[in-house]
Amino acid sequence: MTVARDRDLDGVLLPLLSVPQGATGMALAARHGDQEAFLVAGTTRHDPAPPITPDTRFEIGSTTKTFTALLLADMAHRGEVRYDDPVDRYLPPGWRLRQRAPVTLQHLATHTSGLPRFPLGIVVTALPTWYSNPYQGFGPQQVRTTLSRIRLRSTPGSRFRYSNLGVGLLGWLLAEAAHRPFEDLLAERVLHPLDLARTSSASTPQATGHWHGRPRPAFRIPGLPAAGALRSTARDLLRYLTAHLAPDDAPSTPLAQALTDVTRPRVLLPHDDGHLGLAWFHRTSADHDLLFHAGTTRGFTAFAGFSPQTHTALVSLVNTSAGSSRTFIQRSYDTLVALAARTGEDADRDRGDRPAKHVPVWDCK
Results as ranks from 00 to 15, higher is better:
6 D>H: 10
15 P>Q: 10
19 V>L: 10
21 Q>H: 14
24 T>E: 14
24 T>I: 08
29 A>D: 09
32 H>V: 11
39 L>E: 13
42 G>W: 06
42 G>E: 05
42 G>M: 04
49 A>F: 07
52 I>M: 08
53 T>M: 04
60 I>F: 11
60 I>R: 07
77 H>P: 04
78 R>Q: 14
83 Y>G: 13
83 Y>V: 08
83 Y>S: 04
86 P>H: 09
86 P>T: 14
89 R>P: 02
93 P>F: 13
104 T>W: 10
104 T>L: 10
110 T>C: 08
114 G>H: 07
122 I>P: 02
125 T>W: 02
134 P>Q: 11
134 P>Y: 11
146 T>F: 03
147 L>P: 00
150 I>P: 00
151 R>F: 05
152 L>S: 01
154 S>G: 10
156 P>N: 07
157 G>R: 03
158 S>C: 06
160 F>K: 06
161 R>P: 00
174 L>F: 06
181 P>H: 08
184 D>G: 12
188 E>T: 15
189 R>A: 15
201 S>I: 13
202 A>D: 13
204 T>H: 15
205 P>E: 09
206 Q>R: 15
207 A>T: 11
207 A>Y: 06
207 A>N: 07
208 T>H: 03
210 H>Q: 00
215 P>F: 05
215 P>K: 08
222 P>F: 13
226 A>D: 09
230 L>M: 06
233 T>C: 12
234 A>H: 05
236 D>R: 01
237 L>V: 09
249 D>M: 01
255 L>N: 11
261 D>S: 14
263 T>S: 07
263 T>Q: 14
265 P>T: 10
266 R>D: 04
268 L>R: 15
274 G>E: 05
280 W>R: 07
281 F>Y: 14
290 L>I: 00
292 F>L: 00
296 T>K: 11
297 T>D: 10
307 S>F: 00
309 Q>G: 03
315 V>H: 01
320 T>F: 01
320 T>Y: 02
327 T>W: 11
328 F>V: 15
329 I>S: 05
330 Q>C: 13
331 R>W: 09
333 Y>V: 02
335 T>C: 11
337 V>T: 13
339 L>I: 03
342 R>A: 15
343 T>V: 12
343 T>Y: 05
343 T>C: 11
343 T>K: 14
346 D>G: 04
356 A>N: 02
365 K>C: 08
